[in-house]
């Protein structure tokens, strides 16, 4: 099926949940509400016409200026039909959680853990939601746009070097005994 046909099919099947459909360079994105994601993915996975058996990717994107702040982006692929689609679920900052798709694709497990680690989006129903790349006691979520790129400068920066400079200043006036 063409990507746009799949999007149309989704619109018919879930008129309440599909918010918008957009296309760029032949790739179609379907934006959905987060409430019903598991049913949508179940449908896409089980329906023999779409048959999305392969979860290519799952990731988060942070848009601090938009109202539902986060997007969780799913890239689906069907190995039998060789078609793909991108779904984006909107997640607001206040209620930063979404249903887990691990019951549909078990491979989503670590992707969701990473998304939780990097963006703080909680996945309801995930079997083992812990941080994955950052240490367990880490504060903050690094891939959020308001997370600083650089940590604070250490206080004792290059003290040894400064001392060397001061020494050299002092030695400038020094006169060697002849």
């Amino acid at each position: 099926m063409e990507q746009i046909q799949i999007a149309e099919r989704l619109k018919e099947k879930f008129p309440e949940d599909v918010l918008s459909v957009s296309e760029f360079r032949g790739q179609v994105s379907v934006t959905v509400r987060k409430g019903n994601v598991l049913a949508i993915f179940r449908y896409l996975h089980d329906n023999p016409e779409t048959d999305f058996d392969y979860l290519q990717d799952l990731c988060g994107v942070d848009y601090p200026s938009r109202k539902p702040r986060f997007e969780v982006v799913y890239h689906l692929y069907s190995i039998n039909h060789r078609h793909s689609i991108r779904l984006k679920a909107l997640v607001p900052e206040e209620d930063c959680s979404i249903g887990s798709v691990v019951p549909v694709w078990i491979g989503a497990n670590w992707h969701e853990r990473e998304c939780f680690d990097m963006f703080g989006v909680a996945f309801k129903g995930h079997p083992d939601l812990r941080r994955i790349l950052m240490p367990d006691d880490w504060e903050g979520h690094p891939l959020r746009k308001d997370y600083p790129l650089k940590g604070p400068e250490p206080e004792n920066d290059w003290k040894g070097f400064r001392e060397v400079l001061e020494d050299s200043e002092r030695l400038k006036g020094f006169e060697w005994e002849r």
Binding site: Q27, D57, H75
Partner: peptide
């Protein structure tokens, strides 16, 4: 815009979104 593109690296499918 946005793009997902993948290539076959020795380990498997390397995708860039």
């Amino acid at each position: 815009g946005e793009i997902y593109s993948s290539v076959e690296v020795p380990k498997g499918e390397l995708g860039f979104y």
